[in-house]
Structures are given as structure tokens and as C-alpha cells.
Computed example of a mutant assay.
Amino acid sequence: MIQMVPIDTIAGEAVEQLLDRAFGRDRHTRTAYRLRAGTQAIADLSLALVEGHALLGSIQCWPVQLEGDDGSVWPLVLVGPVAIVPERQQEGLGRRLMEAALEAAQGGPPLTLIGDPEYYGRFFDFDAAATALWRLPGPVERRRLLARGTNVPALPGVLAPRRHTSAAA
């Protein structure tokens, strides 16, 4: 039976091995990792799927902020990575993790992610409408920088790690 559990109940090494299998060992060079630098995943929004003793998948959410060129600061939550062991992909496990994280994130800051707009737009209402003027600490395909939620800031600024957060977001 597949169970969803808080990711902090899973050994960190097991999560890292899953991420290596799903995204490759060079994943740390990606812009999303720069956005997470120096922060801790938000425990209430970071989950894992297990079957028996096997880790099947995980989702992590991270505190980030948009530092507006006008001096404003907008707290956001960076969703991802969403990882599923390769042999269990296409079974809806990633979608199950996303739905649980989105439900847990309700009422919190707007969400952002770097991902496939056709998938995340179609199933989870993410889009790039508000993110066109955001700058990131590395390269990104503009169409893949997505956001979701009320009060997504559509203004120029830098997306950066948020180091001071509450437990929920």
C-alpha cells in the first residue's frame, strides 16, 4: 500500500538518491538550486510517497521571495523538485504529490515553480502571466517560470531565497 508521509520522516540520503535517479547528479547546477540555497524545505509542504520501505517519490517546497525593484518584498513558495523513481513514472504519483502539496499550501503565499507550462498549467493552474519581469540567479526559459495563487506580484524584481520564514511557509 502506498502511503504519503512527511518528507522529514525519510532519511535525507534516500531523498538525495531519488533526486539523482530522477534528475541526474548534475542537478545541483540548475537555477532552482540557487533559489533554494541556504534555506530549509518547508516541512508542512514537503512530502514523500512510500510503499513498504521503498521511497517512490517526493515533493519539496521552499521559501523564496520576490524582491521588487520598487523595494517591496513578496514572500513566495518555490514548488519542486517533484521526483518519482523512474520505474514508477506515469502512474499518477507525481500528480498525487502535487495535489497534496497544493492543498497544504492553501491560504499561504503564492506558489512558483520552474516546469513544463503545458502540464502545470493544464492540471494545476500555473502560468507565466505574472513572472515575465522576474529575474533569477541563473538561466531559465521564461515560459517555464510559472506562478499560481492570488496576489502573485507581476512586477520587476529578483527572485531569491527567503531565509526567515514561519513553519507553514
Rank of each mutant, 00 (worst) to 15 (best):
Arg142Gly: 03
Gly92Ile: 15
Ala14Gly: 12
Ala32Cys: 10
Ala128Pro: 01
Ala130Asp: 05
Ala168Gly: 11
Phe123Leu: 10
Pro137Ile: 06
Gly149Leu: 02
Gly108Thr: 07
Gln106Tyr: 02
Val15Thr: 06
Leu19Gly: 06
Leu97Asn: 07
Tyr119Met: 03
Ala101His: 00
Ala11Gln: 11
Gln106Phe: 05
Met1Ser: 05
Gly138Met: 05
Gly52Ser: 06
Asp125Tyr: 02
Gln90Ala: 13
Tyr119Asp: 09
His164Ala: 05
Ala54Ile: 05
Leu159Ala: 11
Leu55Lys: 07
Gly80His: 07
Ala104Lys: 05
Pro75Ala: 07
Ala160Pro: 05
Asp26Lys: 03
Ala160Glu: 08
Arg122His: 14
Gly115Cys: 09
Pro161Lys: 01
Pro139Cys: 05
Pro110Leu: 11
Ala154Lys: 02
Glu13Pro: 09
Phe23Glu: 03
Gln89Ala: 05
Ile114Phe: 10
Pro109His: 11
Val79His: 02
Val140Phe: 13
Leu19Asn: 13
Ala22Gln: 02
Thr9Asp: 09
Ala130Cys: 09
Asn151Ile: 09
Ala48Ser: 08
Leu93Ile: 06
Asn151Cys: 13
Gln90Trp: 04
Leu136Arg: 06
Phe124Pro: 05
Ala128Asn: 09
Asp20Pro: 13
Thr31Lys: 07
Asn151Val: 12
His53Gln: 07
Pro109Trp: 04
Asp70Phe: 11
Ile114Thr: 04
Gly94Leu: 04
Gly12Leu: 14
Glu91Met: 09
Val85Arg: 02
Tyr120Trp: 10
Cys61Gln: 01
Glu16Tyr: 12
Pro75Ser: 00
Gly138Gln: 08
Asp20Cys: 11
Leu19Tyr: 07
Arg148Met: 10
Ile7Asn: 15
Asp127Ala: 05
Ile7Met: 14
Ala160Asn: 01
Thr112Pro: 09
Ile114Pro: 06
Leu55Pro: 03
Tyr119Val: 15
Asp69Trp: 03
Ile10Ser: 10
Leu45Lys: 15
Gln90Leu: 15
Phe124Ala: 14
His164Asp: 08
Ala83Gln: 03
Ile84Met: 06
Ala160Gln: 11
Pro109Ile: 08
Leu146Cys: 02
Ile2Tyr: 03
Ala41Asn: 08
Gln3Ile: 12
Gly157Glu: 09
Leu76Val: 01
Arg96Gly: 01
Gln3Thr: 15
Glu118Thr: 02
Gly52Thr: 06
Leu159Phe: 09
Leu45Met: 11
Gly12Tyr: 15
Ala14Asp: 14
Arg25Glu: 11
Tyr33Gln: 08
Ile7Gln: 15
Gly138Ser: 08
Leu76Gly: 11
Ala128Gln: 00
Gly12His: 13
Leu113Gly: 01
Gly94Val: 08
Ile114Asn: 00
Ala83Pro: 04
Trp134Pro: 06
Glu16Thr: 02
